[in-house]
Design a protein around this nucleic acid. Structure first.
Lengths: 264, 264
DNA sequence: GCCTTAACTTCCACTGGGTGGAAGGCAATG
DNA sequence: CATTGCCTTCCACCCAGTGGAAGTTAAGGC
C-alpha cells in the first residue's frame, strides 16, 4: 500500500476539522508544516486539504505563505446563536455603560462557561475571558451562578471531577464548593476573588429562560474595587430581567446551537 | 456502479461546505431533507455527513429533529479577524453612545461590504445590515466610501458590472456614480438616502491603515433625520482617527482573514 | 557563487473510505 | 389501516483520497 503508517478509520471530515482546530491553540498564523504537526496529518494530505479550504475561503493565506482562519468561516458562523446574541447585546452594552466595568454574557457548554458576548471600554484591561472562549465554571462568577441554578445532576456531575486551579485562590474542595453554590442560590448572585487570575474579581447574576437557568451576566473588575462590587447588584438584576423579557418569546432550542441536556 | 447519477470530481470537503452553506439561505432550522435539497446531495450522503458534523458540534440537532449550525462552529470562527474586531469595538460603541444611532464597522470583501460589527440600542430598528452579512457597495454609505478610496483598478472593476437596485433610489448609472465617488473622495464622507431600504439613510467615513483604505464606520438612521445627518461628522471623524491609531501597530495581513488584493 | 537546510509543491499507483439507491422503520394524518 | 413524509440503515462498487518520494523554491552560511 502507498502508506504503511496509514490510519484507517479516519474520515475526511475529521481531517478537515483537525485542520481548523489546529488554529485554536495558537493566535498567530501557521505554516503548512505547523498545521500538519498540530493536526497529526501527513504533509501532503494537509497540503491538499489546506489548499481546498483556502479556495473556499475557510482559510486565508498571508503574503508570507502562512495560513490563518478565513473570514468566510466567520461569516458562516454568524448565524449560530444569533438570536441570543442579538437580543441580549443592547442590554449587555447598557450593563457596561451603567457600571463602566467589563460586562459579560455567558452560557454553559459542557463543563465550562462559554463567553457569548463581552462589552468593555477602550482602556486596556487584563483579560482572562474572550468572546468564544471557555473557562472552568468553578473559577468564574458567571460559571458559579450558572452551576448553582443548574439541575442537580449537572452540578453533581461537575463536582464529581477534579477541579482545575488557575490560581491559589480558586476554590476546589468539592464539599466547601457545594456549600458555596447553595449560598449563591440563596443570595441570587455569585462572586469571585482572584480565582481565575490575580488582580481581578467578578460578580454575576443568573438569566433565566422558561424557568431554567439559561445564561449569566457578570462584571469583571480590578481586585482593588472588590469591596464595592455588590453595589452593582441592582443594575445586574435589572439588566438580567430585561434580557429575560427580551428572550422569553424565543424557543430555547433556537437560542443557541448547543445541547444543554447532553452530559458532555 | 452504485450510482448512475454520481457526480465525479466532487470532493468530500466541498460536500461538507455545501451542507454548512445550506444554512446561509434560511434563518430557521432545517430538516435533513431540506439540507439535502439545498446542498444538492443525495439524502443518504447528507445523512452520513450531517451525523458526523453533529458529532463534532458543527451542527446541532433540536429535539424536533431539525438541524441548525452548532455553537462549535461559532467558537472556531471567533479567532477570525479578532484583532480588528477587538481593537475597534470599544470605539464603535463610543460611536453609538455619542450619537444614539446604529453604528457599523465594515470592510470590503470582493464586490460587497461585509459588516464586521454593529452597535445599536434596545429600541427596535429596521435593519438591512447584520453582523456577518453583506450588501452591495454602491447602495450603502460604508460601501461607497470604501470604494471611493480604493485603488483605481478595484473601482474600475466594480463599475464595469451591472449594479443591483434594491430600491428605486439606488444610484446605478456608472458614469454618475463614478462622479459621486469623486465627490466623496473630496469631501471625505459618503451618504445614502433610502438606497438600500426605504425609510433609512446613512453616513460613513473611511478608516485608513498604512495609507490604504482599510475599513469604514458609519451610522444608519431614519430618513426623517436625514437633514441633520452631517452633524455627526465630527464624531465619525474622531472615532475613525482613534480606530486608525488603535490598529496602526497591527499588520494588515493579520487584521482580517481575507485577501484584499484578489480581484474577487 | 555554491552548498546546506528548511519549507513548500507536485507526482502517482494503490486502496479503503465514500457513495447512494434501495429497503426498512416510524410517526402523523385522513 | 392505507398513505404520506421523513429519517435511518444497509452494502457492493469504485474513484476520490492517500501519503511516501521526488522535485522545486527560498533563505541563509561561508
Amino acid at each position: 500500500m502507498a502508506g504503511g503508517s496509514r490510519e484507517p478509520g479516519r474520515t475526511v471530515t475529521s481531517k478537515v476539522l483537525a485542520i481548523l482546530e489546529a488554529f485554536e491553540t495558537s493566535r498567530s498564523a501557521l505554516s503548512l508544516t505547523d498545521i500538519a504537526d498540530k493536526s497529526g496529518l501527513p504533509l501532503s494530505t494537509t497540503h491538499r486539504l489546506v489548499n481546498e479550504l483556502t479556495d473556499w475561503g475557510l482559510l486565508s493565506r498571508e503574503p508570507n505563505g502562512r495560513y490563518q482562519l478565513g473570514i468566510r468561516l466567520w461569516e458562516l458562523a454568524q448565524n449560530t446563536g444569533r438570536q441570543l446574541r442579538d437580543a441580549a447585546r443592547p442590554f449587555v452594552q447598557d450593563l457596561f455603560s451603567l457600571t463602566g466595568e467589563t460586562a459579560h454574557l455567558a452560557i454553559r457548554a459542557g463543563h465550562e462557561v462559554l463567553y457569548i458576548d463581552r462589552v468593555y471600554g477602550s482602556k486596556r484591561v487584563p483579560r482572562a475571558s474572550r468572546v468564544g472562549g471557555r473557562l472552568p465554571m468553578h473559577a468564574t462568577a458567571v460559571g458559579k451562578v450558572i452551576l448553582a441554578f443548574e439541575e442537580d445532576w449537572v452540578r453533581d456531575a461537575y463536582l464529581n471531577r477534579d477541579l482545575e486551579r488557575p490560581t491559589a485562590h480558586t476554590h476546589i474542595d468539592p464539599r466547601r464548593f457545594a456549600e458555596e453554590l447553595g449560598q449563591i442560590r440563596e443570595q441570587g448572585y455569585a462572586t469571585t476573588m482572584e480565582e481565575v487570575r490575580l488582580g481581578s474579581c467578578s460578580i454575576a447574576v443568573p438569566v433565566f429562560h422558561t424557568g431554567r437557568i439559561g445564561a449569566a451576566i457578570g462584571l469583571v473588575l480590578p481586585s482593588s474595587h472588590a469591596s464595592t462590587m455588590t453595589r452593582h447588584l441592582p443594575v445586574l438584576k435589572g439588566i438580567s430581567a430585561q434580557i429575560e423579557r427580551a428572550t422569553a418569546r424565543i424557543p430555547l432550542e433556537t437560542l443557541i446551537g448547543v445541547h444543554r441536556g447532553a452530559k458532555d
